[in-house]
Design a protein around this nucleic acid. Structure first.
Lengths: 197, 197
DNA sequence: CCTACCGATCGGTAGG
DNA sequence: CCTACCGATCGGTAGG
């Protein structure tokens, strides 16, 4: 129970979360066993359960860390408008270099459409926040005349988020035939009256 | 081994495929056990394996029937152009009334991003065919001046398919906040110079 | 953190 | 098609 002990415990917990995220990305949450995750860290599955009392608690920790990383990357949230859309494009560029994140997100999102999945509420909230965030930006752009006339900000926001998700699945399945970032830019160019950058 | 015996076997096989499709939609392929599927049909899991020798063989049968149903609905493939896009919108209208189909497709597609998943090649082919089909239509529209100037048919085709998939995940997760058909129509209206219908 | 164990469930097979 | 079984694996617990 020394300070060193606490530190070691925290590091070990982080290692377990990292291993779990990798496993979920490859095999989904249901498809990943505690024994498999524990083996990646070099402990027994009972040892893992010393740090996380249940399988669900480990999933919750993975999702929490993902949120924390996202929040960190967004830094001090950009004001609604072009900057937010650029941020999403930058996120896509980041994801292309880190396919594991896309894998994790895509696998979990599809599992979590089931109402009784432990990550279901997480993704409900995730989608709602993402839509609201993008909606405010499209509304700001509309006010500035930077949105093509006749484009409904709500429809633009909803389809923009959906496009990101759909592109990711298709990109993971056939990486050579899908330009993730280019497709996003293409879509935004059809909606805006100004260049993205 | 009478004709009646054959018929009964065929019906039983169809019942099993139906039960499997429902189970996959709710829990994914990996998450569905042969015992659970067999119970829905009222036989033992060993009895199921009499009709389908392995778990993978049953998945293959489910995918084959889905293709057959799709082919039937398309009837005598429409010529490239507006008619094909209308067909996709009609498909979305059909899917909204049959969420189980969307569930099945979404769950399996996400599982199958893994290269060693038994449905991986199926979805590779599925995406390629879908993209080529839509691409030909956007090219035909471009030739008629019905595509907005500056819109690349390839980018339009890729994003259109991706949008359909992404909308489906979001619709399944938060059904009340996603207008599947309206969003598709919105997107097409931003690409075309003519009304869809 | 570990070893050892629990009851439950898995896909598949044997033998009828 | 069934009963009965196989070896493997699962999440979680006991007891240290």
């Amino acid at each position: 129970m020394t300070a060193g002990g606490y530190l070691k415990g925290r590091i070990r917990r982080e290692d377990i979360i990292t291993a779990a995220a990798t496993a979920y990305a490859e095999a989904g949450y249901q498809g990943s066993s505690l024994r498999e995750i524990a083996k990646r860290v070099g402990i027994s599955h009972a040892g893992l359960l010393y740090h996380f009392p249940t399988k669900e608690a480990l999933l919750a920790a993975v999702l929490e860390r993902r949120d924390a990383e996202d929040a960190e990357r967004e830094q001090l949230a950009a004001p609604p408008g072009l900057a937010v859309l650029r941020h999403f494009v930058a996120l896509a560029e980041h994801n292309v270099r880190h396919p594991g994140i896309v894998d994790l997100y895509t696998r979990l999102a599809a599992e979590a459409v089931a109402a009784d999945h432990p990550a279901h509420e997480y993704f409900e909230r995730h989608y709602r926040i993402a839509r609201e965030n993008v909606l405010r930006s499209f509304q700001a752009l509309a006010a500035n005349g930077e949105l093509r006339p006749g484009v409904d900000p709500h429809a633009a926001a909803l389809t923009f988020i959906a496009l990101m998700d759909g592109l990711q699945v298709q990109w993971l399945t056939t990486p050579d035939e899908v330009d993730l970032v280019g497709s996003l830019r293409f879509y935004l160019s059809t909606l805006l009256t100004v260049p993205l950058d």
